[in-house]
Design a protein around this nucleic acid. Structure first.
Length: 633
DNA sequence: TTAGGGTTAG
């Protein structure tokens, strides 16, 4: 910076002498030097200096000044200046186009491009990338195609930057085949062109094609690796994402992970609840100085929360500088509390956010309402729901209604939930009926359940879960004929009950168990422990709840089915393979059943263990014989 | 100048 100051001083010297007889060109290198360094005050002073001497910036200097203002966050001055210049050049237009794009004003970018065209000014290789980006912003493939045609006429289609931007445009406007066609005919491509195409295939879920491109590309940079890692994560392939991240690190110093890389790999830890992996990536980020990046910190909050450590999540949230706590950061924390059943903390965090002057959005309210729902704060939730539009200008969407149906439904206020559904301004979709059905199941209301299920059978005929749920309810009251009818439908349509699976991380390695699984090397020990368990916990007051077993079998058999639920297997494995006092963290792909929930409470007491179970909906913290959800989920 | 981006109910 000091050599830069030196240069600046040298440049400024002749200008300060009175009277200067310099053309406005002399100012150009100064503004260029000030660009990108947040020197807007100094820039303004020099601009004023010019004005005092009656020096009107020409188009060339104007372009530099527009860039300087835009880069220092002062778009308004950039626009005012642009409008004052009499003979605009392509360069000047490029500057303003770049500025508009940077601030997300896509329509303004397109408008300037059209104006430029009308004035007979040629667009060049610096114009098209931004115009194309704005087409993406407006998600207008039609406009993108027009711009493609114009670049073709000018002979710029095969410019590396223009070509890559075009691939990106086709990818993001949902036309991967056009993107690939263009890629194929480009006479020269660079690593960015490959990266853009890889990201496109990942976005479309064509993971294998992306992998193939990644393996074939002549050079890879950090963006290539990051695109692959985040692509895996987006497609639910958390293990592959983590493995590739490790592979990348083994490449040595060739590729240097940056904040985007770290941010892309963290959701993979969250997805597989790999707390130790997440922690080690956190340490890694700290070592390379990325732990003060607020986006990374936000991703860490989400990772820790999803891996079951609310304490670490909160710690990371607190570490984000007050001015850098974005809407996403607040939303992440509010949602984290909600998923752990800490509704009151969600509410308090929301109020902090409002005090901090952050405008909430739809996701904020989704977190807030689900927090209230999971904690039984029914009236608090209703209060927020009713004022979200009036006070905070956030229109409730169907997801919010689903949350409120859930809020009322969990509390057993099924009639009110039905009334809300009737009054909804939009069509009730699967989310609404699904929430109602789940509530009916918990409160054993067969009449409403049948109605909700009927709607769901039409709305999502392939979702086996709905059939299973209703079937379980019939089984509970001994309506075996109805049970068999539903099972016949399931069978005839080739639907399978999705298998329950749970996993547990021990010494940094995940162990997966399916219901009734005997394939694990330690299966014998696990089953021995589980078989002895009922007697042990029955002595402490446990009564098995067999109503959650689907099959029409004897009570004794049902009880055995219960002992082999996947979460029990995972917990047993954890008890066998960790030292006393170690917290067990189990993740399940379905909702935890009532019996497992009860049994786990007893296990936490008998074995003196804290057990944290993450099911598809939320977290349960078991300790000393009780659960954080207070049996309310 | 281009490519990779964290939060979303049941």
């Amino acid at each position: 910076m000091s050599s830069q100051n030196q240069t600046l001083r040298t440049l400024l010297q002749p200008l300060m002498q009175d009277p200067p007889h310099l053309s406005s060109y002399a100012y150009a290198p100064i503004f260029q030097l000030l660009t990108g360094h947040n020197f807007s005050k100094l820039g303004q002073q020099i601009h004023a200096h010019m004005a005092l001497r009656g020096i009107e910036p020409n188009s060339f200097v104007g372009a530099k000044m527009v860039a300087m203002y835009a880069s220092s966050g002062d778009l308004d001055s950039a626009i005012v200046l642009f409008d004052r210049i009499i003979n605009p050049s392509s360069l000047l237009f490029n500057s303003i186009i770049r500025a508009y794009t940077r601030y997300g004003f896509a329509e303004k970018t397109i408008g300037s491009y059209i104006r430029m065209h009308r004035l007979g000014l040629r667009a060049d290789n610096f114009t098209f990338p931004f115009v194309l980006k704005s087409c993406v912003h407006l998600s207008s493939r039609w406009m993108g195609k027009c711009v493609h045609g114009q670049s073709l006429r000018i002979g710029l289609e095969f410019d590396l930057y223009v070509g890559t931007s075009m691939i990106d445009m086709y990818v993001k406007c949902g036309d991967i085949s056009d993107a690939h066609k263009l890629f194929d005919i480009m006479p020269a491509r660079d690593v960015s062109s490959w990266n853009a195409l890889i990201a496109g295939y990942m976005k479309d879920g064509e993971v294998n094609v992306a992998v193939d491109l990644f393996e074939r590309m002549p050079n890879r940079n950090i963006v290539s690796w990051t695109a692959m890692i985040s692509g895996y994560t987006q497609n639910g392939l958390a293990e592959q994402a983590l493995d590739l991240f490790d592979e990348m690190l083994q490449e040595g110093s060739e590729v240097k992970p940056n904040w985007v890389t770290v941010m892309s790999v963290l959701p993979a830890c969250a997805h597989s609840a790999a707390l130790e992996r997440g922690r080690s990536i956190h340490n890694f980020a700290s070592r390379i100085g990325l732990n003060s990046n607020s986006s990374v910190q936000t991703a860490l909050v989400a990772m820790y929360a999803k891996c079951g450590s609310l304490v670490d999540a909160h710690h990371c949230f607190e570490r984000i500088h007050h001015n850098e706590k974005s809407l996403i950061a607040w939303n992440t924390m509010i949602t984290a509390y909600a998923s752990h059943g800490c509704g009151m903390e969600s509410v308090l965090t929301f109020e902090d956010m409002i005090r901090a002057g952050i405008q909430p959005d739809g996701i904020t309210f989704l977190g807030l309402l689900s927090g209230c729902s999971h904690s039984g704060l029914v009236d608090v939730g209703l209060k927020y729901f009713h004022c979200m539009s009036v006070v905070y200008s956030v229109e409730p969407r169907v997801e919010h209604y689903a949350c409120v149906v859930d809020l009322l439904g969990r509390a057993g206020r099924l009639v009110e939930a039905m009334e809300l559904i009737d009054q909804m301004p939009m069509q009730a979709g699967p989310s609404i009926w699904g929430a109602l059905l789940a509530a009916c199941r918990n409160h054993r209301n067969l009449e409403f359940a049948e109605m909700a299920a009927k709607k769901l059978f039409v709305l999502e005929p392939d979702n086996s879960g709905n059939y299973v749920l209703l079937s379980n309810m019939y089984a509970e009251v001994g309506m075996w004929e109805e049970v068999n009818n539903l099972r016949a439908i399931l069978k005839s349509q080739g639907m399978k009950k999705s298998p329950g699976g749970s996993w547990i991380e021990v010494n940094g390695k995940a162990h997966l168990f399916l219901g009734g699984d005997t394939s694990h090397p330690q299966a014998k020990e696990i089953y021995m422990l589980l078989e002895a368990l009922p007697e042990k916990i029955k002595a402490a007051g446990y009564i098995p709840d067999t109503s959650f077993v689907l099959h029409d079998v004897s009570e004794e058999e049902k009880e055995y089915n219960l002992t082999t639920h996947s979460e029990k297997l995972a917990i047993a494995f954890g008890l066998l393979n960790t030292s006393p006092g170690v917290v067990l963290r189990v993740t399940k792909n379905l909702r935890i059943c009532v019996d497992c929930h009860t049994a786990t409470k007893f296990i936490s007491k008998i074995y003196g263990r804290e057990i944290i179970v993450r099911d598809v909906n939320r977290f349960h913290h078991f300790k000393d014989g009780s659960c954080s959800c207070r049996d309310y989920w």
